[in-house]
Design a protein around this nucleic acid. Structure first.
Lengths: 335, 335
DNA sequence: GCTACTGTCGAGAACGTTTACGTAATTTTT
DNA sequence: AAAAATTACGTAAACGTTCTCGACAGTAGC
């Protein structure tokens, strides 16, 4: 246990009280600028760093923000984290990372084991179907901002990409390319994001008077393996789809792998489109058409909103929907 | 400020002292098992969660481990984090994330602004050339374990993949495939990892009596863009290389993109090999031969070592080198 | 010369825990 | 039956801050 420099050391060296040192270090009021100078100088000389535990205890709040999300090993979430970290760092907040592995029990376990009062707030992308464990947090006055996989019911700020319009654009793009039998590899049921993308897909079909084939909609997890397996199922139908819209790039890439196994020409025979703009989508061949999500922006804005909730007394919840943009590549060109 | 349940509430409800409650909650000694039962029951009933700031203050230590690394948006680091998080979570430790953006000043800034005594230890992959800011941490008795980009001089535990043998294997594989003019897209100078992979490359050439061409070794950053730019330079040489060994997959992928621009057949005309086994390496076409790093294992073992340092009084530093394995794909097959 | 400020500072309680020490009650030893 | 040891618990200090009260100058107003 290294004996750290404390406020007392500064006080003793300067022959003043700890109260004055504390004020000099933080406020500017009620302290002579000369003594303030001396304190700051001494603090620097001794390389004083405030003890965050003591500060947290005394003030009843900290500079920690907790991030709770399913994974960190994918482009979208890791980029969101980078965005969050960018603003958190610049404002002097530290981030604490909690990974749920996309398992609801783990998510609940994490929130229940947490001493939530030692957090300034939480940024979360939930994999749960119920949000009770989060309302327990907001009930105690700790702010939560959701991103991506948001709670449809809770009255908090939420930040997300435009899932509905992105899916609509994706589907409409396929239609405009001449595909008519469009399947959708959807996400797990009950997640708002899944439903919005599904709705965008359905509405685009309806707008263009294309029939809605229930067999062409398969719900499963978000992984590449799910996309691959689901596509194998789609290919068993007597009347195959001629295009596949993946709820995300990984499922779309899984679909492409399955198609390649069957020697089906991607684009020409069956079009494929994804969602995310994972760097891999540009590298795979044929390159994958996709809908880009502004992941970094989402992280940045989520964190900014959370900090506003933390610092402003009354700041009403906001819902921010960031535009998604279509990126056309090779996997949806017909000729 | 939500009034949280404290140890005092339990004590008052049970008509006992806070000391007894504290002991009942933590130790088993010096407390009757009946009262202990009652305390645990009451704690559960009140949904008591210990205040980590108070505990940290009183005990002079915490359960926070800090992770300091260059990026989070790539396969390797995000997988390492997942490994770290796996063991940290199971042992009740929380992880605090610091991203340096691969900038030395930022790394130094982070360590200097930290109240390091509020951490149990640090897990770091450094982008710095000097390690003074880390020895300042270990000098205060806080443990640091390096992974991947380790300090060559500091006496701490270190965990890394076998960079030398991996690079040696990669180069030898190219030689065995019949490539003779092998270039190396190296990492930044001064980083131990860069030097080890470079040495493996050089030694493999030497073993097989191939000339070492200084023009075929280019040092630059770790990004895909660097790999692409460096390859453009390589292609201007009168006598081009017939194979390229990238210090990591991203640079190798950058090389592939450059080669594609020149309509050079990858594999047949110029072989390409990477290092990491980024998922993208399997998706790009032709698929990229690479040397796989056990990223998850590295995270897991790093964290385990750190926890041993934290919990055991005298636990001497260990250096763990995990084997790298060659994964042969299409980018290095000649015919 | 008296009151009323204003500016600067210190004393001390408080935040929620842990822990060294003391003590009373009980049990064991002799 | 007295002495010693053990068990179970409480008291209070400590951890490093913050913050509410004053205290005490000095200044200004009358």
């Amino acid at each position: 246990m290294a004996s750290m420099i404390t406020i007392k050391d500064i006080a003793r060296n300067l022959n003043i009280s700890v109260a004055t040192v504390s004020r000099a270090l933080r406020d500017t009021y009620d302290v002579n600028k000369e003594t303030r100078e001396k304190v700051l100088q001494m603090a620097k000389a001794l390389d004083y760093k405030p003890n965050v535990n003591a500060t947290g205890l005394a003030k009843g709040k900290t500079n920690n923000i907790g991030i709770i999300l399913p994974f960190v090993t994918n482009y979208y979430f890791s980029t969101v984290i980078t965005g969050i970290q960018e603003v958190a760092y610049s404002k002097g907040y530290n981030i604490m990372l909690f990974i749920t592995n996309d398992a609801e029990e783990r998510e609940i376990d994490i929130t229940h084991n947490l001493n939530i009062s030692s957090f300034a707030g939480f940024l979360v992308s939930s994999c749960a179907s119920s949000f009770k464990h989060f309302s327990e947090i907001t009930d105690k006055g700790i702010h939560v901002v959701f991103f991506d996989r948001v709670s449809p019911t809770m009255d908090t700020s939420k930040v997300m990409q435009d899932d509905y319009n992105g899916a609509f654009m994706a589907t409409e793009h396929l239609i405009q390319q001449g595909y008519t039998r469009i399947a959708h590899l959807a996400g797990p049921r009950g997640i708002a994001m899944t439903e919005k993308r599904l709705k965008g897909y359905q509405d685009a079909l309806e707008k263009h008077h294309l029939p809605l084939n229930e067999q062409f909609i398969i719900h499963s997890g978000f992984s590449q393996e799910c996309g691959e397996a689901d596509t194998q199922i789609l290919l068993t139908h007597k009347k195959r789809p001629d295009a596949i819209f993946g709820v995300n790039d990984r499922k779309a890439i899984g679909a492409m792998l399955a198609l390649k196994q069957h020697n089906i020409k991607i684009g020409k025979e069956i079009g494929v489109i994804g969602f995310t703009n994972d760097p891999a989508s540009a590298l795979i061949s044929p390159s994958l058409t996709t809908v880009a999500e502004p992941a970094f922006e989402i992280g940045k804005i989520s964190c900014e909103l959370l900090l506003k909730h933390i610092t402003k007394k009354r700041f009403p919840p906001e819902e921010v929907v960031l535009p998604s943009t279509l990126i056309v590549r090779e996997s949806t060109v017909r000729k």
